[in-house]
Design a protein around this nucleic acid. Structure first.
Length: 503
RNA sequence: GCGGGCGUAGCUCAAUUGGUAGAGCGCCAGCCUUCCAAGCUGGCUGUUGUGGGUUCGAGUCCCAUCGCCCGCUCCA
């Protein structure tokens, strides 16, 4: 990472605080790691992103419906999904074959005579002795004979996967690949339902919104006169007790997701996977993420999660590195099958036309709302040069948001605070607000200063009422990025901005 | 989780060997301004992240804790 990009992130964080986009949570108490608050400008930006998503994936389509599930669900949901089992024991994963083991059940066994290593394998067992036996028994006959021949001089090293000595890595019992260090995953936030804090009342804050959709799949199917292929969309908070929150809001412990579960016939899963992957990628570009910083990266086969048949990440080149904004996965029928098994409820869809009964496959485009917000902030941050009142070029900081995302769409100024200009400007401002545009009125200080303040907020248009306005009812409207001004009728300001938003 | 750095006004930073905290910008009020921040006048701002300790005295030294940044690690 170059010095410049590090600077960029620092400047962006400073601007976010200075202008009221993002604050650290509970800052007056010293903050809390992994939690962030959106200020007056930030909340508008984030809402605009969520609104754009909802409009584009739900309202504009006939094959999509929305949902808003509770954050706390019956804990059995998380047993079915695999979240409880997978994250309560210390676990190791094979970096090569992706197998997962309980760390206290996997040993690495090494037999060596001096520098000469005769045996170096992983073994599944309950204790060291059994691990050594298992490793010996699993060896081929030639190796076994050599071990017996050198028995007296052999030095055995056996260690459990969660107690590996510094610098030693564990070996996968299945493929011989390298295992990760042991990790105790307890990523789900635990809480208690009701007044009694005992084991029967344990519940979890959802680590993803997806399971609420799967749990309601039958309800939606039964009530909406809808049939596959169709999707259910949801925006909502999720919680993960991340070991190490990092990179501003990128990895937070409380975050908001925008998720779609799209249900289709298994034979059409590949088609819909490709469709959503491309559709979602295009969405970010359309809202202003330059394609050269955005990339679509298909997962390698060995990178896939156990439930996924195919997956692609939509990644953005942040100042701190290329990181994932959204994942689009073919989750097959894994989740519905799991819920059928754990709940005992039939998850099949019966097709009246073909008389076919099947559990749909699911394509899941799962986006991080805060991550998208951060990407749009990074993309918007620009430093350029603009002339001051003497024509000397000065540095300018400007947030070049897509107008659809900009927290404030329009600022209205009187050029000077006299000759009736404030009244005319306030009138335009009020008219804009009545039309539903986020508008800001400012009459204080020099007009140049007011323009620059709006640049930092990312306001795409500034309207100024001047002397000529009083003669012919026209105003200047200034473009944030080009600094160019058009002169238009005051009565047409609202329409002008609305046209720009529709582009 | 490990290692390193850091924490002083809203922001960026100052404060000699420990001697009762200061500047610029911003912000607010007013003036001046007929179009792109640094014209004028005046004004506000801090339990120096928090809690202990050493000391006659701590922003400065010690301990703990919280948070932020960087690198590793991690990210079903």
């Amino acid at each position: 990472m170059s010095e410049n990009t590090g600077d960029l992130m620092e400047k962006l964080v400073a601007l976010c605080k200075r202008r009221g986009f993002i604050f650290q949570s509970s800052e007056i108490y010293g903050g809390i790691n992994g939690f962030w608050d959106y200020g007056p400008l930030g909340v508008e930006l984030k809402r605009n992103i969520k609104d754009a998503w909802w409009r584009d994936v739900v309202l504009r389509r006939d094959d999509m419906v929305g949902l808003d599930c509770s954050i706390i669900m019956n804990p059995k949901v998380w047993e079915a999904s695999g979240h409880v089992v997978n994250f309560n024991d210390p676990l190791v994963d094979c970096k090569k074959c992706k197998a997962r083991f309980r760390a206290d059940k996997v040993f690495t066994v090494i037999a060596a005579e001096g520098e000469n290593v005769l045996l170096s394998v992983g073994a599944e067992a309950d204790d060291e002795e059994h691990a050594r036996l298992a490793a010996t028994n699993a060896a081929n006959s030639k190796t076994r004979r050599r071990l017996e021949d050198h028995a007296q001089k052999l030095v055995w090293t056996v260690f459990r996967a969660d107690k590996a000595p510094q610098g030693r890595s564990n070996i996968c019992p299945l493929c011989g690949g390298e295992l990760t260090d042991a990790r105790k995953f307890n990523m789900m936030f635990k809480t208690f339902v009701g007044a009694m804090e005992d084991s029967s009342s344990v519940a979890y804050l959802r680590p993803e919104t997806a399971q609420g959709i799967f749990a309601n799949y039958k309800n939606v199917l039964d009530t909406q006169r809808i049939r596959p292929p169709f999707g259910i969309a949801q925006i909502g908070k999720s919680f993960r007790n991340e070991i190490n929150p990092r990179n501003f809001t990128f990895r937070s412990r409380e975050f908001e997701q925008m998720e779609i579960e799209f249900f289709c016939h298994p034979s059409e899963a590949d088609k819909w996977y490709a469709y959503w992957r491309d559709e979602r990628y295009k969405w970010y570009i359309d809202l202003g993420l330059k394609s050269d910083k955005l990339r679509l990266r298909p997962h390698e086969t060995d990178e896939l999660a156990h439930y996924a048949r195919a997956c692609a990440d939509i990644e953005y080149s942040f100042p701190f590195g290329v990181s994932e904004l959204e994942g689009v996965a073919n989750r097959t029928d894994f989740d519905l099958t799991q819920h059928q098994k754990f709940s005992g409820k039939d998850m099949n869809f019966f097709d009246d036309e073909t008389k076919e009964r099947y559990i749909p496959y699911v394509i899941e485009p799962s986006g991080g709302c805060d991550r998208a917000t951060l990407a749009f902030l990074c993309e918007a941050y620009t430093e350029d040069m603009a002339p001051d009142e003497k024509g000397v070029m000065q540095a300018r900081t400007v947030m070049k948001f897509h107008p659809r995302l900009a927290p404030v769409k329009l600022a209205v100024f009187p050029l000077v605070k006299k000759e009736g200009m404030p009244e005319v400007a306030a009138g335009i401002h009020n008219e804009a607000k009545k039309a539903g545009l986020a508008s800001f009125y400012d009459e204080k200080g020099a007009v140049g200063r007011r323009y620059r303040r709006q640049d930092e907020a990312g306001t795409p248009f500034c309207v100024t009422v001047d002397g000529q306005t009083l003669q012919d009812q026209t105003v200047t409207i200034r473009d944030r990025d080009s600094l160019k001004q058009d002169r238009i009728a005051a009565a047409k300001v609202v329409q002008y901005v609305q046209d720009a938003l529709a582009k």
